[in-house]
């Protein structure tokens, strides 16, 4: 349904050109849930907005690539054609539900706008549809709440409204960019459940973008790990969590609580800073922070390579070498803790 080929999204800034998305390829099948994880600043949002063609141009430009949605290339499509896809076939929800709704319009107006932009419905019918949508996303007393303004809703409720807006035209693909990051933990879980239930009910494909592997573990069938504008590992959720194939993903897993193994493990933050995307390091982008980096890593910029059945990783180390080094390192660290 969606196929991204060698996409580059660069940003013109005073200091140079930020390679926010640098040669990314992947595809999304109808009805599947795909997670994109990576530290903040790794280019997840720019990638997501590329799929909607909503990056501000300038400063963002696309020097290379294709985004094929149902066979059509969004990069070369006319603005008027893109508008027919946005909010209709591909929808998006954003990180901050507090600021994502227009503060001076009633929820009703914002929902009906989403409906009537693509559907030829009378006001009455659109209103009825809006109530249905709000019910669907779990907003109690929708007839009354519809007449309220965004500031009268809590953060979680606003994100539900955003989801209702995104679902207004039953999109084939829903892009959720950090949809729970700004919310309380309990509310986060509710929103994730809602997304999962929508996926089940309507078979909507979902791209869930997050820096939180826990979110991905709950929701995604497949995961793409992003680092400095590139996909560095891709595979089924089980591949990523249990058959980790490269150092960045492994570091990311070690830096987060409650996933992977028993949960009695120590959290190890990733050392160093994400690389400068204007002048990335020579060789592998992760080499300055990588615990396994050897001399080769300063020269070779690894590309994604097959690690078995749809599992891809970008690292000069083979799976066997990586597992071996990992074991050694973990053994040394255990010694360190004991001694």
């Amino acid at each position: 349904m969606l196929e991204v080929k060698n996409l580059k999204a660069y940003i013109d800034v005073d200091a140079g050109v930020v390679k926010a998305v640098d040669d990314v390829s992947f595809s999304i099948k109808a009805g599947e849930t795909v997670g994109i994880v990576g530290e903040s600043g790794s280019g997840k949002s720019v990638l997501a907005l590329s799929l909607m063609q909503l990056n501000p141009k300038p400063p963002v430009f696309y020097p290379q690539g294709e985004i094929l949605f149902e066979g059509q290339n969004l990069l070369t499509m006319k603005e008027s054609e893109l508008r027919k896809i946005r909010g209709n076939k591909i929808s998006m929800i954003f990180q901050d539900p507090m600021s994502s709704l227009n503060p001076i319009f009633r929820i009703e107006k914002q929902l009906i706008e989403a409906i009537r932009t693509h559907q030829d419905l009378s006001r009455k019918d659109a209103e009825r549809k809006a109530i249905e949508l709000l019910t669907d996303v779990g907003i109690p007393d929708p007839e009354r709440r519809m007449r309220d303004y965004p500031h009268q809703f809590s953060g979680g409720m606003r994100q539900r409204v955003m989801i209702a807006i995104a679902l207004a035209c039953r999109p084939k693909l829903l892009i959720a960019d950090e949809p729970t990051t700004a919310l309380d933990v309990t509310i986060q879980a509710q929103i994730l459940e809602l997304l999962a239930s929508i996926q089940k009910k309507y078979g909507t494909a979902i791209i869930i973008i997050t820096h939180d592997l826990g979110v991905v573990a709950k929701l995604a069938d497949r995961v793409m790990v992003m680092y400095s504008g590139r996909i560095v590992e891709e595979g089924s959720t089980a591949d990523i969590f249990y058959r980790t194939s490269m150092p960045y993903t492994w570091s990311l897993l070690r830096s987060m609580p409650n996933i992977g193994s028993a949960g009695n493990e120590r959290l190890v933050p990733i050392q160093g800073q994400p690389p400068n995307l204007i002048t990335p390091p020579k060789g592998c982008n992760f080499n300055p922070r990588c615990l396994f980096a050897g001399p080769e890593c300063l020269e070779v910029d690894p590309v994604l390579a097959e690690r078995g059945n749809g599992h891809l990783a970008a690292c000069v180390l083979s799976q066997r070498e990586f597992n071996e080094r990992k074991r050694q390192l973990e053994a040394v660290e255990r010694e360190g803790v004991r001694g």
Partner: peptide, 12 residues
């Protein structure tokens, strides 16, 4: 503002 991005994302 974010809400303007939302409006564009609706296809307006």
């Amino acid at each position: 503002q974010d809400y303007i991005r939302t409006a564009r994302a609706k296809g307006v």
